[in-house]
């Protein structure tokens, strides 16, 4: 899941860890978070329903979500 680190373009990439929280640690606002989730969708060829997309606000949550998707590749 290292790919995540590369396409988080908005902020200081050195701060990204598995535990990073998008807004608290990485300084992303709610629009940035939407953009990150959209980039994840594209990268893994999945579409994340709104309810679940709203719950993704950390690297860990994103990774868990992707791992839980059998279609993700």
């Amino acid at each position: 899941m290292d790919i995540l680190k590369n396409f988080d373009k908005v902020e200081d990439a050195t701060k990204i860890t598995n535990e990073s929280h998008f807004s608290k640690d990485l300084g992303l606002d709610s629009l940035d978070t939407v953009e990150v989730v959209m980039a994840i969708e594209e990268e893994f060829s999945i579409e994340i329903p709104d309810k679940e997309a709203d719950a993704i606000h950390s690297v860990e949550k994103a990774v868990n979500y992707i791992l839980s998707q059998p279609d993700a590749h």
Binding site: S30, L31, V34, E35, V37, M38, E41, E42, E47, D50, A53, D54
Partner: peptide
């Protein structure tokens, strides 16, 4: 706003 923002970005994609 957020669902709309998502919808627009997906539509562009």
């Amino acid at each position: 706003p957020k669902p709309l923002y998502r919808r627009i970005l997906r539509a562009h994609r």
